[in-house]
């Protein structure tokens, strides 16, 4: 399990998978104001990306993965208008 859920912030570590995506989806739907921290994430799994894209939570952190940092995160932010 690479998803750690706090009270208002979830931390994604590693790549994540479909199970993580389902858990994240459910957790974000409980309270749309919750924040996702990508500080420690690796390559984000497509399913996780889709959850972030569809639900558009606030994103935090600066991922180390160059693709995520340079392309994925900006694309998500443009799409969601989040911070």
């Amino acid at each position: 399990m690479s998803l750690t859920r706090g009270s208002d912030e979830a931390l994604i570590a590693g790549d994540g998978d479909l199970d993580d995506a389902r858990a994240l989806d459910a957790w974000l739907r409980e309270d749309p104001s919750r924040v996702v921290n990508l500080e420690g994430c690796g390559h984000l799994h497509s399913a996780v990306v889709q959850v972030l894209l569809v639900l558009g939570p606030r994103l935090r952190g600066r991922p180390a993965d160059p693709f995520v940092n340079q392309w994925l995160l900006p694309a998500l932010r443009r799409h969601c208008g989040g911070l």
Partner: peptide
């Protein structure tokens, strides 16, 4: 599968956009 894996390492990438 993880479709984004197919895209992430493309050389010479100049733009990346996502939509649902």
């Amino acid at each position: 599968q993880d479709p984004l894996r197919l895209v992430r390492d493309l050389p010479g990438m100049r733009w990346f956009a996502l939509d649902a």
